[in-house]
Amino acid sequence: MQLNFRGLPALVTGAGKGIGRDTAKALHALGAKVVAVSRTDADLVSLSKECPGIQTVCVDLGDWDATERALGNVGPVDLLVNNAAVAPLQPFLEVTKEVFDRSFDVNLRAVIQVSQIVARGLIARGAPGAIVNISSQASQRAITNHSVYCSTKGAMDMLTRVMALELGPHKIRVNAVNPTVVMTPMAQANWSDPQKAKAMLDRIPLGRFAEVENVVDVILFLLSDRSSMTTGSTVPVDGGFLAT
């Protein structure tokens, strides 16, 4: 399947590492005009060197006012990937206000804010668009020590459906991708214990964690016209985890 995003403006959050970085690179390679957003300037500098032409914005999306200043006038955006996330893990009885607030600020509130900015611009221009939210299998299954993270992703799935409902009449499609563990730096930190990893792998029929490219391929499909009748969906990339 050949995809072509030539000339289309795209914005990717959490583009410094992992899924976001590879998504930004793939969109750039397919001709999109990419704006890459990350809170880590060094990651954006290395991305710019790797992919000359990508525009970078350094901002902590957990800060509402800073995000508004950084992205409020970002220019026309047709394609949006809400990938930025944090995943500090705590047992339920040890959850702190700081972890709760930070997780919901980045994983959910920032998705609302950035999507509002992009959707308002699309509506003002009368242009169609596509938004992909990066959720998780953790939105639909309980995982030990993930009470806050699971909650943010469960909320993201429902947010995706409501966004699709309200933005559909404006020809803006909204979908979510729900991966299993993807061996990004964040996942490696949380799943480096072989015993913990085995317990998860035993629940995945295909018997392996996802590669970043497995997720990026689905993101690209959902951004493309090849998925023009798909909106409000949550698409597992989980090796069958949610089927068990």
Rank of each mutant, 00 (worst) to 15 (best):
P179H: 04
R173P: 01
L220Y: 08
Q140K: 13
I131Q: 09
K171R: 14
M158A: 14
I131H: 07
M200A: 15
A176M: 02
N214P: 08
P169A: 14
E213I: 12
M163R: 05
A176K: 04
V174F: 02
L223R: 00
Q195E: 15
E166L: 01
M156H: 09
A138Q: 11
K196H: 12
N145M: 10
I143T: 14
A138N: 15
P169F: 03
L167R: 08
P185T: 10
Y149S: 05
N145T: 15
L167N: 07
D157G: 03
K171S: 15
S224K: 01
R226V: 08
V174Q: 03
R203L: 15
L206F: 15
G168C: 09
N133L: 10
V218G: 00
P179D: 05
S192F: 08
K153L: 06
W191V: 11
D157E: 14
T144H: 14
L159F: 10
T144W: 09
L201D: 08
R226K: 13
M158S: 11
M163P: 01
A155Q: 00
S192G: 12
M158F: 14
A210K: 08
P205V: 09
I134E: 02
F209W: 03
Y149N: 05
A138D: 13
P185F: 04
L159I: 02
N175C: 13
R141K: 14
D225L: 08
N133I: 05
V216N: 09
G168M: 09
P128Y: 07
V132S: 09
A199T: 15
N178M: 12
A176H: 01
E211H: 11
G154H: 05
T180G: 05
G129V: 07
P205A: 11
N214Y: 09
K198N: 15
P205M: 09
L223W: 08
N133Y: 06
V148F: 06
T184V: 10
T152F: 00
K153A: 04
K196N: 11
L159M: 13
L220D: 11
A199I: 12
P194C: 10
L201F: 10
M156T: 14
N145R: 14
R203C: 03
V216S: 04
D193Q: 02
M163N: 07
S139T: 04
M156C: 12
T152N: 06
R226D: 14
P128R: 12
S147M: 11
A189E: 15
A130I: 03
M163A: 14
S151G: 13
A187T: 01
W191L: 08
V212K: 07
